[in-house]
Amino acid sequence: MKTEVTAKLEVQDLSLRFADKTVLQHISMRIPEHKITAFIGPSGCGKSSLLRSFNRMNELLEDTSTDGRVLLDGADIYQAGVEVAELRRRVGIVFQKPNPFPHSVYENVAFGLRLQGIKQPRKLDELVESALKKAALWDEVRDRLHHSAVNLSGGQQQRLVIARAIAIEPEVLLLDEPASALDPISTLKIEELMYDLKQHYTLVIVTHNMQQAARVSDYTAFLNMGQLVEFDETNKMFTDPSQRATEDYITGRFG
C-alpha cells in the first residue's frame, strides 16, 4: 500500500470468536481516509464481522470475544474507558436489510440528532434536510416527511437509513452489503451515493458482488476463512492479484 494515504482505521492483529467458533484470525490492515474500501470473500468468511468490529457492534451479539486492536485516528477503540455510544456516532453503520424505525421519515433522520442533544426545531429541520439531500432522497420524500418510513420502497428505505447515519456526521461509514436486498436501479442509486459520500467520509463496504466492488471501491480486501488473504488497490486486485486464491475467487472459480 502506498504510504502517502493516511490511515483512518488501523487493524492490528485482530481476532474474533463467537462462542467457541473462531471468526477472524489475526487480521492486520490499514483503512485509508476518504476512500472506499471494499471487503469481498465467500459467505461466512468473516467480512461482516470484521466490519462490525470497527464500531464494536459485535459485542451486541451473544458471546463474542475480541483480541487485538483497532485504532481510529490512532486511538484504540477497544481500550477500557472508550465511550461506545460516542464511538458509534463517529463510526456509523448501515446493514444489509433496511431497518427504518417505525416512525416518520423526518423522525428517523432526526433520531440520532436528538440523541446528540439537538432540540431546536429550526436546526433539526436544517440538518434533516441536508442529510436527506446528501443521501439523494430529499426530492423523493420532501412531500411526505411526516409519513411513516415503513411505507417507503426498499431502495428508499436503505437511503433513508444512510441519511439517518450521516445526519450525525460520522467520520467513517460502514456499509454491510447495503444493496444486496435491492433492485438494480436502487443499487445504482446507492452506488452513486457512495461515490458522492467518499469526499466527506471514509467508507468501508462489504459486498459479495464483484462488479460492485470493482466499480465503486478504491481498495479491496479479500477475506477467506477468517483470514485476510490480500489487500490492495482495487485496480491491482482485479487485474493482477498476487494470491492464487484471490484470482480463483474473482474469476468465479470458487465461492
Binding site: I93, F95, F101, P102, L115, A165
Partner: peptide, 17 residues
C-alpha cells in the same frame, strides 16, 4: 426485530436510550 435495536445502537444510542 433485533434489527431495530441494532439500528438504534448504530446511531450512537446508549442501551437506556
Amino acid at each position: 426485530p433485533k434489527n431495530l435495536r441494532l439500528g438504534c445502537f448504530a446511531l450512537g444510542a446508549t442501551k437506556a436510550e
